[in-house]
């Protein structure tokens, strides 16, 4: 049986952006996530184009996804539009980084 979308998102909290030192879900790097049968389709971005950790973060998402029971395949689409900004963080991450929520993406 395929896992729920929420279960997959919770699992993705194990993958961090090493420089910011926080999980990629709360930072707002995951723009979209769909669970289809035994595969996951992730649409994500990086904090900056050309990020040196890009390949490792994407490999981390793939590895973590494939470790979820019932998941065999993880497809990742890396996008730069819309560009990431700190306003994409969740309230819990904004609080951790002491970022004011100005509502501007």
């Amino acid at each position: 049986m395929a896992p729920s979308r929420e279960a997959v998102l919770d699992a993705m909290h194990d993958v961090i952006d090493p420089e910011l030192g926080y999980n990629i879900v709360d930072i707002g790097l995951i723009y979209g996530l769909e669970v289809l049968d035994h595969s996951i389709q992730v649409t994500m971005t990086m904090t900056t184009p050309g990020c040196p950790a890009q390949d490792y973060i994407m490999a981390g998402v793939k590895d973590r996804g494939q470790r979820i029971p019932g998941i065999e395949n993880v497809d990742i689409a890396l996008v730069w539009d819309p560009p990431w900004s700190p306003q994409k963080m969740t309230p819990v991450a904004k609080e951790y980084f002491q970022i004011a929520d100005d509502g501007d993406d």
Binding site: D10, N23, V25, G28, G32, K88, T90
Partner: peptide, 17 residues
């Protein structure tokens, strides 16, 4: 702790999926 603790459920980005 290697990663700051998170509260499951709060990490979902509403309205972006």
């Amino acid at each position: 702790p290697p990663v700051p603790p998170f509260k499951p459920g709060e990490g979902i980005i509403h309205g972006q999926h």
